[in-house]
Design a protein around this nucleic acid. Structure first.
Lengths: 335, 335
DNA sequence: ACAGGTTTCTACAACGTTGTAAGCAACGTT
DNA sequence: AACGTTGCTTACAACGTTGTAGAAACCTGT
């Protein structure tokens, strides 16, 4: 029992277009006509058919957010902020999981073309500038690492500076054998490269040697990878007095592995992460980390996208940097 | 530069409908015609306009999943499974955050009527049967606690049995002063009531008294609430030898508070949770919990919804129960 | 060569909405 | 009284797709 404009129109004794005008808040409708129409709408419980409206208007009011994995807390928290910011504009957010693979990311970026979506906020791991080049000019904002010279807007934080700052924090506590966990050599590892660069810079600042054996790779950045990387480090006889993990889930895994090895955090080994996920504020010990302003990132992304959707195809791609702050907690400073 | 069926048709020298037939995999198309059309599609990079298709077909290929909060790990993990199961059917999932409020939940359930969505999977906290009654028969599946005698399909687990089993596990370890954390008196607290009932039943089974002072309420089920509840318990002089938290995030908060109080887990206090979120497998100590089969829950929900979307409005509402298992870990058994 | 079927393709009319252009009042101005 | 203005309303034609019905071409077996 679904009703159309036509049904409302018949009931109110006006034309279809007049009902449409009422629904869309058109000004020049006589008050009594408007009242009659609104009454009919209420009686029939009329709701517009969005597919038809979209077809006519060429807009859907839906944007997509494509992230590698939803159950990585960082992305879940980010998604929350994007959804909130989008809701303020009356937009609905369609969430897409790419799994971080280039193929699924391409699909997400291409899906943009099927008119279901007004724009896309994409957090790419594997996508390259070439992949993006082929897209017709549908609005897109990239999050995280910048795809070099990509044709799209971008929001991120200064990974090198942040990694340098948190490593310096460890140095400042007197730590000298600082391990880095999470390096990646794959093309997907853009964040890893930047954070490693910041780590190396901080060591250089402090006059410490960069020791290859202290750098542990991690294929992915889950808790299990962090735990495995630290176990591996310890098994090779390395005895770090601090560990900088390239994200918080790695760090939580590292805490676990250190605990299993009987090492105390932070007394024997200080641990630092990156992302400031909620888990790190309640872990034992709580986790020192870099806290990017996720709320700001989400909001900026939505705003830039909105500008493009509203017709601005002229301005060259913008590259915004969101603030972050160092959050020192128990894992580096005895409580 | 977006193309339509008509453009492809002109380029391939066939009718619009033939192109449509090729796009939709209609069988009776001559191989050479098909080839010409496909070539034209590729050359123009044609992609169908979903709004138009939806308008014509009355289907959108989109279902909504409405959960209280995305950054509660349980819901994020569940969302992942729903998205995966839906993708296998070629469906896209639109994720909605209700915040657990009745109002937003009503909006999510009503939004179903605007034709943007073929069906809804809703995880309600506050919604009542009356709220649902008013909906025109658009397919809906409810997750979590059953809205009593609701008019919709439902998937959940046997909360009472699971709570009873994990409490019995604590009893079996010789614990006698077992606290319960997470009780709620609000109408939203359906899960809380069931889990409390299971807890009480297990105590009765073991001949233990139900002691009101060992039951700690928690307004929400976040880490902070779990920590606060345990601090409160301890502050009133209660000294439990075990704590059953009604979900894992509460339990992780409880671990934190016990740690701050200098109590060892599990030696001094055993801790059990509910949900089996990933965090609990890497916390220190790892968390004993009830592990609902989330993958199954997501899949069943999608399947039931699919049956309704495919036209089955006859079968009375079904109520499926997904399996769970007890996962004993370090927080109750010294590793 | 022909009836009867099957395959392949096409023209047309929807789906429900909104933009456009235009009609019809009622009004104030000359 | 004739004229433009303004306010309100309407008919019609799109938007891009697919279902229906049917035409044209192609087979088969007699």
């Amino acid at each position: 029992m679904r009703h159309r404009l036509k049904d409302v129109a018949e009931r109110a004794g006006v034309s279809v277009k007049t009902v449409s005008n009422v629904v869309n808040g058109y000004l020049h409708v006589r008050p009594d006509t408007r009242a009659r129409v609104e009454e009919a709408i209420a009686e029939l419980n009329y709701r517009p058919n969005l597919s038809a409206r979209n077809l006519r208007k060429g807009r859907t009011g839906v944007i997509a957010l494509a992230v590698p994995e939803l159950d990585i807390p960082y992305f879940a928290e980010l998604a929350r902020h994007v959804v909130t910011a989008a809701a303020e504009r009356g937009w609905t957010v369609l969430i897409d999981q790419t799994g971080g693979g280039a193929e699924r990311e391409r699909v997400a970026a291409a899906g943009i073309g099927d008119h279901m979506i007004d724009g896309l906020i994409l957090s790419p791991l594997a996508l390259t500038a070439e992949d993006l080049a082929g897209l017709d000019g549908t609005p897109m904002v990239l999050l995280g690492e910048r795809v070099d010279h990509g044709p799209a807007d971008h929001v991120g934080i200064d990974n090198v500076a942040a990694a340098r700052e948190i490593t310096a924090h460890l140095v400042g506590l007197g730590r000298r054998r600082i391990a880095a966990v999470g390096s990646q050599r794959t093309p997907e590892g853009a964040s890893a490269r930047l954070r490693l660069a910041g780590y190396a810079a901080a060591l250089a600042d402090a006059g410490l040697d960069y020791d290859e054996s202290l750098v542990a790779p991690a294929p992915a950045w889950h808790r299990a990878d962090g735990a495995a990387a630290v176990r591996q480090l310890l098994a090779t006889g390395v005895r770090p007095d601090a560990v900088f993990c390239f994200n918080d889930t790695l760090a939580l895994g590292a805490l676990r592995a250190l605990h299993e090895a009987g090492l105390r955090v932070p007394e024997d080994v200080a641990v630092a992460g990156f992302d400031d996920i909620e888990d790190g504020r309640f872990s034992v010990p709580t986790l020192t980390t870099i806290a990017p302003d996720k709320e700001r990132i989400g909001r900026l992304a939505v705003e830039m996208l909105a500008a493009r959707v509203d017709g601005d195809r002229e301005t060259p791609p913008r590259d915004l940097t969101a603030p972050y702050r160092l959050a020192p907690r128990e894992s580096t400073q005895p409580g």
